[in-house]
Amino acid sequence: MPLHLTLNGEKHSIEILRRKPYLVLKVDGRTHEIPDWSAESIGEMAVDGSATGIARAFVDEGGRETCFVRIDGRTHEVVLIDPREEGAGHDATRDEIHAPMPGAIVSVHKQAGEQVVRGETVITIESMKLQTALAAPRDGRLLDVLKRAGEGFDRDELLARLEPADEV
């Protein structure tokens, strides 16, 4: 499957056509020969017979991987799209927080209507003398939290829900 990237808000794809004797890539249907490339963050890259000095660095934060590419004194930001995120489509399990084991609620950190970011703790539960923080599965707004502190629950019980994400 091709790698998808965005540059200046536009989506592009790159596919490997050939590896040897030299690399051939297809970018949005255009074929490019890359006889020489380097894995270093600062290096040379030859594309279609002309060499370019490049510098690049990756920032993988906030759930997205951005590559800063500097070519000829100009920096560009390319977002590399995770194929899993892209291919997953709508997944109901990402809207809900279920109990991984039976236990009781220790504390509720976020209430219905509050905005949460992926990984933010919504509820802390206790089970078998062990406290576990349950995190938001994605960015969004909490639709409801179905349990209050002190309440017990069974394994797999629904504890909180996010508002459905807007269709992308």
Binding site: L3, L5, L7, H12, I14, I16, R19, L23, L25, V27, D28, R30, H32, I34, W37, A39, S41, M45, V47, T52, I54, R56, F58, E65, C67, V69, I71, H76, V78, L80
Partner: peptide, 20 residues
Amino acid sequence: LRDRILIAAALGQRAFREAI
């Protein structure tokens, strides 16, 4: 230029290099 930027970004990514 755009294609060069995209190629540079792709080749910078470990997963893409490994795919090669």
